[in-house]
Amino acid sequence: MKYPLIVLALLVATVNLTAQDDLLDMLEAEESTKNYKVGPTWKTMKLVNLHSTSMVKKNGLDFRVTHRFGSIGEKSGGGVHNLYGLDISDDIRISFDYGITENLQIGIGRSKYSELIDASIKYKVLAQKERKAPLTLVVLGNIATTPQQAVDTRYDDWLNTLSYFSQVIIARKLGDRFSFEFAPSLLYRNLVLKTTDIDGVNAKDENVNISLGFGGRFMITKRVGIIVDYMYTFSEYRSNYRPINYYDPFGVGVEIETGGHVFHITMTNAAGIVENNYIPNTTANWGDGGIKLGFNISRVFQF
């Protein structure tokens, strides 16, 4: 009766002593209760067309040059005589984005497409953590104007040139290689044009466009990855108006990070680079060779 108890007591004591003996185990046990933020979901703030949840770091300035050539396929205006779209530039955008805090950034940009000038603000509401916080959530908004001399005199009124875009981006990083996101979005344009189709039926474009964006990235190596995105727009006008065929932007690209620079080589059917342009105006499609080669260079200056 006595002996088993003593043996038990000795066992407990031994276990107790060994536990205290392995100092590193004690430290590791304590460390394992910590809940750190998960590493970067993306390498830069845009995929092909879609914004990512990535932000410029505090006191960082992201200088970006994005270029989109013309369509490759002959049916869509490409072909050998403009070297499969390489002689054409559908859009060029130069932009600067600055990180005010770790979670807030502002930016300005200018596009060739409809001479769009946009100012944007992006705010990180939630960052994915190892436990309990499974998602990153970012909200984005912009205001843009097209100071072009439009054929329509109504654009002479400056207010009519304005459009506003807002988006909620929800992303998750799954392991080392894979990240994905979806992004409910809303675009509002102050002025949209009435058009008449061949049957003489009046059709009016919508001021409000609601879209849903999907994006993903797969890293092949630590620095090279494949990026994909797609933007679906809920629009009766775009589905039914036949004189012009509208399509949803779909993009694929290769992402290369070189420490300070991020390069993208992309293919997409969207001509415009900014949402305010590509959501309402994408009329090229992959099936007809309406694919535009493009690239993006991002250089971050940290102050």
């Binding site: 590493g39 970067p40 505090k58 960082g60 990180g99 770790e102 420490g259 300070g260 940290q302």
Partner: peptide, 12 residues
Amino acid sequence: DKALMKEHFNEN
């Protein structure tokens, strides 16, 4: 000092 360096240090 620079947040981007921290990201590269951790990730790469």
